[in-house]
């Protein structure tokens, strides 16, 4: 069974952390992953930097620009991850945009993911129907789970369709907007979390966008299986470097 599905069966709320590969420094990728696991994180999204990240807010854009300036590429990321499964056992997901993967070759990219031990992909600009019609068979061949996004504007019919072709979890975008930290969620989000929670979907949901601290993590995981933090963690790395990752994670988990 895929590591993502194993993790989803655990009887706890899951914390997933996003960071940009090659940030703050080019060779920080592996160290950040190892420290996140040691700090008690359940799952990691490794951001493959892109020059034009449409779904991301200023924090992740800036980290992507920096990572590219540092020299990060798809090829280099795979080479950094070559031995990652010797030290890390939690699920690893690559989050990136479709264009760099197309240039690598979708099948070659998926094969490489399997080789280094990646469990899934999140590709915000890959349309559901394109995945379904062109890429699903390739993803499945290499044992990769593709994670789809839903938003407060996604219709119930479309959520049901996405649920039907998903295997793993659904990435529930908390509110209309790009990625970026918020300090708390309002009634609109609570209502949305409740609405999705009550749909009895076959795939658990993990909430992302706008989660930054213990309060928002708790709110987001009241109904959902877990939550993803990205921008707030990138800000922590920008400010404090890579030495105090456990402080950040403990803060979110309320330890």
């Amino acid at each position: 069974m895929n590591r993502i599905n194993q993790k989803l069966q655990e009887d706890k709320k899951l914390l997933s952390i996003y960071f940009t590969a090659g940030y703050p420094s080019l060779n920080d990728t592996v160290g950040v992953i190892e420290d996140l696991e040691k700090s008690g994180v359940d799952m990691i999204e490794i951001g493959l930097p892109f020059s034009d990240p449409l779904a991301d807010g200023p924090t992740i854009q800036a980290s992507s620009t920096q990572a590219l300036e540092n020299g990060m590429t798809s090829e280099l990321l795979f080479s950094q991850l070559t031995n990652i499964r010797e030290t890390v056992s939690i699920p690893l997901i690559i989050m990136g945009y479709l264009n760099p993967m197309m240039q690598y070759g979708i099948e070659a990219f998926c094969a490489k993911c399997q080789e280094v031990g990646i469990d899934g992909l999140i590709i915000p600009d890959m349309p559901v129907n394109v995945y379904h019609e062109q890429y699903q068979a390739i993803f499945e061949k290499y044992g990769l789970i593709n994670v789809f996004l839903i938003t407060p504007q996604t219709s119930e019919e479309r959520i049901r369709f996405i649920d039907s072709i998903s295997d793993g979890f659904i990435y529930m975008v908390s509110s209309a907007g790009t990625t970026g930290a918020k300090n708390s969620f309002g009634n609109t989000q609570e209502t949305y979390f409740d609405r999705i929670g009550n749909m009895n979907l076959k795939n658990p949901q993990i909430v992302g966008f706008g989660i930054s601290n213990h309060e928002t993590f708790t709110q987001a995981t009241n109904k959902a299986k877990g939550a993803i933090i990205g921008s707030a963690f990138i800000k922590h790395l920008t400010k404090n470097g890579t030495k105090t990752i456990d402080t950040f994670v403990n803060g979110v988990l309320g330890n």
């Binding site: 779904a55 890959m126 996004l149 839903i150 504007q153 996604t154 479309r158 790009t178």
Partner: peptide, 9 residues
């Protein structure tokens, strides 16, 4: 239309 789900509607 290679767009994030947020733009789909």
């Amino acid at each position: 239309a290679y767009i994030p789900e947020m733009l789909y509607p």
